[in-house]
């Protein structure tokens, strides 16, 4: 029993230490990153690498989330004879919650794992030290463009995914439950207020920053040896999932005060 408590304690301590380290990295990055030259070229390149390459996965995920959620709600509403309310019922959960969160733990975790693997292998082959040795700043050169790219691309992907999820819901509404797609669309949009879109985008923005930072942090602290890169990458996925869910909880509290 005490053994179990010890283990839980150790995990919590490690989590808190990591939070401290990630916050420190964020602080250093926003302090040094914007200095000239800002590095727009590299930011653009990273945005393409991280963002555009994630579009197929994001499209696929959000299409299915839209379809699954419409099916669940359609099935439940049918019993009350209220299936025409399907658009009203699905929109809030999808836009405010499911699309940004599922994106963050899939597309976002993929971005972070990619960053961690890339920077981790640079660390192992001393390329990060080489940047320092040549008088440049690894945080500025590596972390800054990736952080900006991740923070920008997740909201963009999120906006697109919201459209796709709506489409997925409309397909199921129309073909399975006999709710016309046009009617589904109108009721879906009708239910949403600008704040709902905004909170969806802000969540995606925060999640994007989180996964970018966590990926860089794990890449940078990769230890010596090639197996260490694998370990960093797995740690990154776990850290991303946990921090996204926790951040989501707090953001939801802020956006939906009781």
């Amino acid at each position: 029993m005490t053994d179990l408590l010890d283990r839980i304690g150790a995990v919590l301590v490690r989590g808190i230490v990591q939070m401290g380290e990630v916050s420190r990295l964020l602080w250093i990055t926003v302090r040094r990153g914007p200095r000239r030259p800002v590095g727009f070229g590299e930011i653009k390149y990273q945005t393409v690498m991280l963002g555009v390459r994630s579009l197929p996965l994001a499209t696929f995920m959000s299409l299915f989330i839209g379809m699954i959620l419409a099916w669940q709600f359609g099935w439940a509403l049918q019993d009350f004879g209220a299936k025409m309310a399907l658009g009203y019922a699905s929109s809030l959960a999808l836009v405010r919650e499911l699309v940004p969160t599922v994106l963050a733990v899939t597309v976002g975790a993929k971005m972070a794992a990619g960053i961690a693997a890339e920077l981790g292998s640079m660390k192992v082959t001393e390329q990060i030290d080489a940047i320092s040795a040549l008088g440049a700043d690894p945080v500025k050169k590596l972390v800054w463009p990736r952080l900006v790219a991740a923070t920008l691309s997740l909201p963009l992907i999120n906006a697109w995914s919201n459209v796709v999820a709506l489409g997925g819901g409309a397909i199921i509404a129309d073909t399975v439950f006999g709710v016309p797609a046009g009617y589904f669309y109108e009721t879906y949009i009708d239910e949403l207020v600008p704040m709902d879109y905004l909170s969806s985008e802000i969540k995606a923005l925060v999640f994007g920053g989180l996964v970018g930072l966590i990926g860089c942090h794990h890449g940078f602290r990769t230890e010596i040896g090639t197996e260490a890169v694998g370990r960093s990458t797995t740690d990154t996925v776990v850290a991303c999932s946990i921090s996204v869910i926790v951040a989501d909880f707090f953001l939801t509290m802020i956006f939906l005060p009781v």
């Binding site: 082959t125 001393e126 390329q127 030290d129 080489a130 320092s132 040795a133 040549l134 008088g135 700043d137």
Partner: peptide, 23 residues
Amino acid sequence: GEEELRALRRRVAYVFQGGALFD
């Protein structure tokens, strides 16, 4: 500090054992 190290590393070059080329 950061700036002094930057100046130092401009004058003192280290050639890494494994090369550490940017791949």
